[in-house]
Design a protein around this nucleic acid. Structure first.
Lengths: 256, 256
DNA sequence: CACAGATTTTGACCTACATCAAAGCTTTAG
DNA sequence: CTAAAGCTTTGATGTAGGTCAAAATCTGTG
């Protein structure tokens, strides 16, 4: 019970200085599973066996290593992370980023190993769900699977952004789409979504979007001069969502 | 039982002329679920209630419409399909392609509607699994969910290609990666993977990869002149996989 | 078989973005 | 606080690939 702090559920006050953006359990992708695993049921020790809570992670710490055996999935509690593949030329190709409330490691589920590495972009914390201990769930397993299906499907849906991001033909569209997708992902878990700190360096954004660092920088500058947003280093405030959507060519056509 | 044709399981003879590439049930993404749904169990009618088998689809037929309520998922039996989002500027952004053995519509699972449309690139056939009738499964539901989890996870893993595809900085890498990903997807379901017909027009490839049609064409030509492959219209034969991998910067670094 | 429409290829030109270079900034460690 | 290393921005220049245009090839249809 105590793990669920019932507090002001407003999406974190805009002006306030908080140490970091932390998602409450209610808006965590693992929530349903935690509940089932015993959080508020009469099997209170079970949960500690299966999920490790709020383990602190250091900046640059690697929490999943590519090609290691799949054992657990992680929920981001606070902080942010990147997944990347290591390519032959020594470069790393960034696959995606993870933010509070999102699940990491799901791709490992269908095989016995993780396909990519995951590394912290900043200090943070994660909850860890141990798949090797699932049998402890007994007849709760069915419900648990149900939750898992939902989580996986949500992921599949979330991935719909990626092709839009990358398929976009020019840098302007990509950056606009990238910012909007970040904003939406933050909003989804009750974090401030109009004004936030980019947790990743320009270098990583560029890598992810297939652009040069300089181009990323210039686009931010251009958007600022067009009054679509304000940037100061990693701090971003989105000011004209409508126009950003237009730039991204993303305001979907009317439903058929 | 008769639905499972036990035949020569070789991945389709290279030189032979077959009407089309059809996956057998064994290599279909729906297989596990079909089995559970009753294919070879004592409830033979059940299956017909839940899965529609080998329904023929015409070229250009739209089998899923964006924003329509989610009801069923589809397995590609033969033929191929594309998913796309309709953008504000009237353009369509191609999200992905589907080939025999793959599942379509899974993204609809977590919400009550499909996020994208799916359209046939050529005549083909699909099996259809009706999610509104799942309660008919009774206590088989648990096993079914298990299968579903596997399918979803496999999908999540398959999507790992996408960022590599799109994040790749230049046209050469993208085309190389695209061809390799096609090849791998074909191979996965026992279809010929070194020599195949591209089911989609250059226009769709270009759209998907964020390139111009002309660039796609020129790259194919260049690869041919480098003896990496042979192209004749839509017919492709991959000749130098190693080199293609190198171009794609894709031969993963050694496991850590 | 022949035509019409679509798809693919080829060529010439030009713009968006990568690359190279260097100057502010910011953060970290001492 | 200062130095060193890292980020981010800005500027100048070159090129990959977009765009426009047209020819060549393929596809389906009466």
């Amino acid at each position: 019970m105590s793990a669920i702090k019932k507090e002001n559920s407003r999406p974190a006050p805009r002006g306030s200085r908080r140490k970091a953006n932390v998602v409450e359990c209610e808006s965590c992708g693992l929530y349903g599973m935690c509940q089932i695993a015993g959080l508020e049921d009469p099997v209170p020790d079970l949960i500690d066996e299966i999920v490790g809570r709020r383990e602190p992670i250091n900046s640059a710490q690697e929490i999943i290593t590519a090609n290691q055996p799949f054992r657990e999935i992680y929920a981001v509690k606070s902080g942010s992370f990147k997944t990347y593949a290591s390519l032959a030329n020594g470069q790393q190709q960034i696959i995606d980023f993870y933010f509070p409330g999102e699940l990491m490691g799901l791709e490992g589920l269908s095989e016995e190993y993780y396909p990519h590495s995951v590394e912290a972009l900043e200090a943070g914390s994660v909850c860890r769900l141990d798949f090797t201990k699932l049998e402890l769930l007994g007849d709760r397993l069915g419900k648990f699977q149900q939750q898992l299906i939902t989580a996986l499907s949500r992921r599949a849906r979330q991935d719909q952004w990626i092709p839009l991001l990358m398929g976009a033909q020019n840098a302007e569209q990509r950056i606009a789409t990238f910012l909007l997708s970040l904003s939406e992902r933050f909003a989804e878990h009750g974090l401030p979504s109009m004004r936030f700190k980019l947790p990743m360096p320009r270098h990583d954004i560029a890598n992810y979007l297939g652009l040069a660092v300089e181009t990323v920088s210039r686009m931010f500058q251009r958007f600022q001069s067009l009054d679509l947003l304000e940037v100061h280093g990693r701090h971003v405030e989105l000011k004209d969502m409508d126009e950003l959507h237009k730039l991204a060519h993303l305001d979907k056509a009317a439903a058929a």
